[in-house]
Design a binder for these strands. Structure first.
Length: 336
DNA sequence: CTTCTCACA
DNA sequence: TGTGAGTA
C-alpha cells in the first residue's frame, strides 16, 4: 500500500507519515525500483497506534518509547504510559484552571479601578506563578519505587514513623463509616493497605500513588482497586467524585505550601456531604513542639477545614500520630 | 503519484 | 509538532 492510501485510511497527510518516519517511529519497506514506501499490515497497525496516542497528546518521543516497550513486554507497559499521560494532562488542566481564575480576577480588577492598577496586577501574576511552581515542585526524595518491595515489612514492624500503623488504619475506617457502593479515594496509597480495608464494606475504591512500583504491588494484593499514578497536588480525577477521601502516612511528605494545595485538591474531588480522614504524623500545638518539627500542625489543618464549613474531629494515637476527620456539609451556603 | 530538502511557525 | 514550496 502506498503512502497516500495509508494516509487517507488514517485521516492524516502523507507529509505527516514521512515526518513520523524521520522521527524513528516507523520504518516501512521501500520498493526497489522507485523507492516508494510500501505499507504492510504491521506498518498500518503501528500508524494507527501512533495516531491514537497522539490524540491523547503523548509526545512523539513518548510514543516511540511506548511502542518499543509494547513490542517487547506487552500491553502492561502501554498502560503505564497512558497513566503517566493522564496524570500529566490533569496537571496541565489544573494549571489552566488556575490561569483562568487569575485572569478573572485581573478582569475584575481592571474593571473596578479607573487607572491601571499595575502593582496589583503584578501581585496577582506573582501569586499565580508561585502557585504553579509549588504544584510542579513535588519531588520523590525517598525513592519509593525502591522502597516498594519491603514496604509492607516495614509497616508491619510497627515502630518508628510507622508505630501504631494498623491501629491508625482501622480507626480511619471506623471514622469514615463506609456504606455499601460508596466511592472512596486513598491518596498516597502505597501498596493499598488502607484502601484495601474498605473493600470489605463493598466500596468502589480508587487509589493514587506517585510510585509505579507501589501501585503494581497494590494491584497484586487488591485487583479490585482502581489504581492511578498521580500525587496530592494534582489528583487525576474530576470534581465531586468521591463520598470519602482518606490518606495515611503520606501527607507529611509535602511542604507547608503544598499541604494547602493538597487540601484544596481533596476538597475539590469530594462530593458535598463527603468525609475526609487524614492519618499522619502531626505536631500538636498544645505541646509547643512545632519549632523542632517539620510535621504539619494538627490545629492548622483543623482550622483549614473549619473555615470551609467542615465539621472537624481530631484524635491523637501517640506522640506524633494523629487522625483528622472532617465532614463536609451537604449545602455549604445553606442558611445564608 | 512519489521522493527529498530547506525553510517557517 | 508539524507544514508548504520547490525539485526531480
Amino acid at each position: 500500500m502506498n503512502i497516500k492510501e495509508a494516509a487517507d485510511k488514517l485521516g492524516i497527510t502523507p507529509r505527516t507519515i514521512r515526518f513520523y518516519e524521520k522521527k524513528g517511529l516507523l520504518s516501512p519497506a521501500k520498493q526497489q525500483n522507485n523507492l516508494y514506501r510500501s505499507f504492510s499490515e504491521q506498518d498500518l497497525w503501528r500508524l494507527q497506534t501512533i495516531v491514537a496516542l497522539r490524540e491523547a497528546h503523548l509526545s512523539l518521543s513518548d510514543i516511540k518509547q511506548a511502542l518499543e516497550k509494547l513490542e517487547r513486554n506487552g500491553v502492561e507497559e502501554l498502560r503505564y504510559y497512558l497513566e503517566m499521560q493522564r496524570s500529566a494532562l490533569m496537571s496541565e488542566w489544573l494549571q489552566l484552571k488556575q490561569a483562568v481564575e487569575t485572569t478573572d480576577r485581573m478582569i475584575e480588577l481592571v474593571q473596578r479601578e479607573r487607572t491601571l492598577p499595575l502593582e496589583h496586577l503584578f501581585g496577582l501574576a506573582n501569586a499565580s506563578k508561585q502557585l504553579r511552581e509549588q504544584r510542579a515542585g513535588w519531588k520523590d526524595r525517598w525513592d519509593f519505587n525502591r522502597l516498594a518491595p519491603t514496604h509492607d515489612e516495614r509497616v508491619a514492624a510497627n515502630e518508628g514513623d510507622y508505630a501504631d500503623y494498623e491501629d491508625a488504619l482501622e480507626r480511619v475506617v471506623r471514622l469514615i463509616r463506609p456504606q455499601q457502593n460508596e466511592r472512596g479515594l486513598d491518596i498516597g496509597t502505597g501498596t493499598g493497605n488502607l484502601a484495601g480495608k474498605f473493600l470489605t464494606a463493598s466500596c468502589h475504591m480508587s487509589a493514587v500513588d506517585q510510585s509505579r512500583e507501589m501501585l503494581r504491588l497494590c494491584r497484586e494484593k487488591h485487583p479490585e482497586i482502581e489504581t492511578r499514578l498521580g500525587n496530592f497536588l494534582a489528583l487525576p480525577f474530576l470534581r465531586e467524585q468521591f463520598d470519602f477521601v482518606v490518606t495515611s502516612f503520606a501527607f507529611h511528605h509535602l511542604t507547608g505550601n503544598q499541604q494547602q494545595l493538597a487540601l484544596e485538591e481533596m476538597d475539590r474531588v469530594l462530593k458535598p456531604g463527603g468525609r475526609i480522614a487524614i492519618a499522619d504524623l502531626m505536631a500538636s500545638a498544645e505541646e509547643g513542639d512545632r519549632p523542632t518539627s517539620s510535621y504539619p500542625e494538627a490545629r492548622t489543618l483543623s482550622h483549614w477545614f473549619e473555615n470551609r464549613n467542615y465539621f472537624v474531629q481530631l484524635c491523637r494515637l501517640n506522640e506524633r500520630l494523629h487522625i483528622l476527620y472532617a465532614d463536609k456539609k451537604e449545602h455549604p451556603y445553606a442558611g445564608s
